[in-house]
Design a protein around this nucleic acid. Structure first.
Lengths: 124, 124
DNA sequence: TCTCTGCTTAGACAGACGTCAAGACAGACA
DNA sequence: TGTCTGTCTTGACGTCTGTCTAAGCAGAGA
């Protein structure tokens, strides 16, 4: 797992414009890879991928933990742990309002990742 | 790490057309998540992200292991291990020609992943 | 056939990850 | 204020991952 999350902020993960050219267009520099790989890693678990999707596709753009937890055969702490991983990867934001905690997706970084994976329309 | 790679082939990772609507549009079903998460996981390491980029952006669409290995401060077997991971995730293909082994990216699955991460242009 | 080069596989080890149980904390309501 | 509900944090345990060294396998050339 080559070390741990690098807290580099050289790349603005919240910017709307893609930070980097597509992966297939130019070689990704080591610094960029170190920043973006943790985000891919966070999406590399089926539970987190579904959580991310549930949050991003939720009405109003945010989802309550109380809605997320029952959707899985996992305990509350485990879901909380996965949500923390998504938060640390910069993929979601959390906010407590009263009893419940609400999670909201950060579209900026999703755009960065999508842009990086973009491939020319016809060359398969 | 929630078990191991699921060998499901319900989703055609080589199809050119996206298999699934964007993650932020509709909730990703468990089966889809189980198939696509390993691909994200494979990209979740800085070394593999760079390898993938070097292969996908190489002239002629393919890269020789002999060109990839010297680009990292890692031993040959370690690079070979990472390439195997990318291969098992369906992200690249390998072919031996004479003495050297060449790796080629599979644009289909990259398109699937990019499509899944696609976000509406303006909602951040 | 023999030897050399290049890549993969096998085995081992340290560290990270996924999961759970138990406890702590924050807010709502009587 | 006291209690209840709901969520997060902490600690522990088993498994997986990333890396290395050593060994094995496949072609090329003498």
């Amino acid at each position: 797992m080559s070390k741990q999350v690098v807290p580099l902020a050289v790349i603005d993960l919240n910017a709307d414009a893609p930070c980097c050219p597509p992966l297939a267009q130019r070689r990704v520099p080591a610094e960029t890879a170190a920043v973006l790989a943790p985000a891919f890693k966070a999406l590399g678990d089926p539970v987190r991928l579904q959580l991310m999707s549930m949050i991003a596709s939720a009405e109003g753009g945010e989802a309550c933990v109380c809605d997320l937890t029952p959707a899985f055969d996992l305990t509350g702490p485990t879901i909380s742990h996965h949500l923390k991983t998504l938060r640390q990867a910069g993929l979601v934001d959390a906010e407590r309002r009263g009893t419940w905690v609400y999670y909201r997706a950060r579209p900026g970084i999703l755009r960065q990742l999508a842009a990086l994976l973009t491939v020319a329309p016809a060359d398969s």
